[in-house]
Design a protein around this nucleic acid. Sequence first.
DNA 1: TTCACTGCAAACGCTTTGCATATGG
DNA 2: CCATATGCAAAGCGTTTGCAGTGAA
Lengths: 167, 167
Amino acid sequence: MQKSAEVDATKEAVKRIFTEYLERKTQRKTPERFAILDEIYSKKDHFDVETLYVQMKNRNYRVSRATVYNTLDLLLDCGLVIKHQFGKNIAQFERAYGYRQHDHLICNMCNKVMEFCDPRIQQIQSMMGDLLHFNITHHSLNLYGSPKIDKDGKCMNCHKEVNIKKQ
Amino acid sequence: MQKSAEVDATKEAVKRIFTEYLERKTQRKTPERFAILDEIYSKKDHFDVETLYVQMKNRNYRVSRATVYNTLDLLLDCGLVIKHQFGKNIAQFERAYGYRQHDHLICNMCNKVMEFCDPRIQQIQSMMGDLLHFNITHHSLNLYGSPKIDKDGKCMNCHKEVNIKKQ
DNA sequence: TTCACTGCAAACGCTTTGCATATGG
DNA sequence: CCATATGCAAAGCGTTTGCAGTGAA
């Protein structure tokens, strides 16, 4: 119960932030927008637009792709969602509130995304901002690597058959 | 003359590397492939597929987009070219040989790409590789930021009119 | 001669756009 | 009420694919 109470608290918090943002920008507080926000904050994983869209369909919530894209733009703008491009042409998103700052390690074999943290990145970021006279708004650090493969040719991390994909 | 001698030396070196790679993989050494390699190593800037394609057309070198894509895959595979996705759906490429390792700062306003270097990234990379049991093959660190704007509303770095683009 | 490579154009897949309809303020 | 959002479908656009013709080995 503890866990779901936490989830609820987070959902309430982001709902408040989004409401405030929409009011400030004089944008409409439509049910679709809050349904999308809620869906995103129902899980921690990275997701792409199609996955989110299908998930909402499966929950019998009728939204169009256009609205999903539109709402994601708003959520990006108010910082509740982060957008990634892990080397391919499918944008990946993840929730940005109530979760520690982190970066990503992407498996060359199975494309699985892992997270890690290193304070030095923040240092580099602020140092380079000062040096080049920029206000750094965000960053993206991705490490790409191959895990060791066991004798059956399976990834030692995800334990799946290895099928190498092009970058 | 010094400068162009350097360029020539680099071009010779990459031609040798590519030749060796193609022979090792028993791929054909077609004139198109070498023309594309040469074109890429004629300038240091980042480029996208369309730019490269048009550039070759302008030099009256007849290549198809398909061949450009195909060749870029080969050049990526043998490490002579690096691919980037600076937050948008257009893949950006740059030469990878004879140029110091660096990362990028992208201007939120004009999308201009700047380069910087920090040894701590290498440290983070190898540390995380060890920690997560991965052989890190490469990384991508992008900082995104906004420059200060002068009183005419122009970017203080590129001095162009600011037109904010969506992430 | 042979088969991988090229050029061209059509297909693809993610994203954006246009327009009629619906609805929040 | 009316300006803005939504849904749907079509258009956009970078990239991939299929196929007939070409040329490296």
